[in-house]
Design a protein around this nucleic acid. Structure first.
Lengths: 228, 228
DNA sequence: CACAAAAGAGAGCAGTGCTCTTGCTCTGGA
DNA sequence: TCCAGAGCAAGAGCACTGCTCTCTTTTGTG
């Protein structure tokens, strides 16, 4: 049973992987909008209808690529975190931020796929949630480490935001002060604002030395969440 | 000359406007990716090829919509600025930020068109630059007013960023200190990071009371650029 | 070995952006 | 006033797309 069923299953896995690989190639070359099932099938020497045995629709294929992209980015962030395990909080934070930026610059179309306009009429299914959370968890982890070891600087929290801050804190990091979690969520989105503006061309004719600006802004974000 | 040429010209203007109007309707309903020239033509009772007399390609039509969207958003920001002419710097700043967010929530697809993933193989032409700059100019204006009237708080500027900061300052606001301009550019992108995360679903299952979080984050951004 | 499940092939449907040719209408100048 | 040329609409057609349906081949298993 294992070998025979395994043979089919293995072949299926291989074809599935080949489809994703070719799709990723096209994605990197032309972008998500021009990703064509027929072109993928053509390149793989199969007919387009055969591809539907593996992915029920173009959106499902895109979902698979989205999950892979989230995982790839998350891994880059985690590597930066692990590579700076002994460092001070702010350098660790900026290292992760720069890893995110570096990954985005290296994979612009995949970045656009996950952090650009959502595909219309397409709702990201549950399965994308855990991979999408990885970068956020890395950032939370750095703040938590700092909180436990050297403590966080004081942060303001308006009264109107307190209920939501406590809700988020309970959800995301019960061991952290609500004001830190709140600042963290904001900084998280702002980090991607910086990256998106650079990648999507909003900095054209405005910022030249994006690297330097980003480094500084990331440092300020770190201070904004209570590090250093 | 005026009436005769005017007749043709007027008809042309009307048809052009009708096309844009219907295109905007479809954009609002289905998103940019599903905007179909044929569907627009169909809805207008004309044949698809006739539409090419007015817009040489789908991209050109999208460009027209992009410019309109930038202008619409810019106008919303300017209105918020003018409506708070006498107010303190921080409330003025947050009012503009909330106007941006409000416009985005009211026009999600148009927002995605201008601040989401750029259409692949499509480079925004020069004509989009001035409309795209309007929100940034509003933010600069508030900082400038504050600088002239009550002064800005001190901001850090690492040595490595100074050349770029002075370049940006000379380009964008020579009357403002380079560190303020630098902080402004970063805050500008971070503002749209907050809005994009909310609009593109990144805050799903994370932030509930987005209004409250945004208000707080916008206030913190104001402080980050030296207001109050 | 026989049979059922899985996979591939091909035709076809409805849609897309865009081009080209064919007419018709309007308009500016002789 | 008349007419050539410009502007415009229409239709056919090309090369695509996602997706479905049917038919055939392959393949693993009782």
């Amino acid at each position: 049973m294992s070998t025979t069923q395994g043979a089919r299953a293995r072949a299926r896995k291989e074809v599935t992987a080949a489809i994703k690989e070719e799709a990723r190639r096209q994605l990197a070359r032309e972008g998500a909008a021009k990703l064509s099932l027929r072109a993928v099938a053509r390149e793989l020497g199969m007919v387009s209808s055969a591809l539907y045995r593996y992915f029920p629709s173009r959106d499902e294929l895109l979902t698979a690529l989205i999950i892979d992209a989230y995982d790839s980015l998350g891994e880059a962030a985690e590597q930066a975190r692990d590579a700076t395990a002994g460092a001070a909080p702010v350098p660790r934070w900026t290292a992760v931020c720069e890893a995110v930026r570096g990954w985005a610059l290296a994979h612009p179309h995949e970045y656009a796929l996950i952090y650009g306009s959502p595909v219309p009429g397409y709702a990201a299914p549950e399965t994308t949630v855990p991979p999408a959370a990885r970068v956020g968890l890395v950032l939370i982890g750095i703040v938590r480490d700092t909180h436990e070891r050297s403590g966080l600087t004081e942060l303001p929290l308006p009264a109107g935001l307190r209920p939501e801050a406590e809700r988020m804190s309970a959800d995301l990091a019960p061991d952290l002060p609500p004001e830190a979690v709140t600042a963290l969520v904001a900084a998280w989105s702002q980090l991607f604002g910086l990256v998106s503006f650079e990648l999507f061309g909003q900095f054209n004719r405005v910022v030249e030395d994006r690297e330097a600006l980003f480094r500084h802004a990331a440092t300020r974000l770190a201070q904004g969440v209570g590090l250093g």
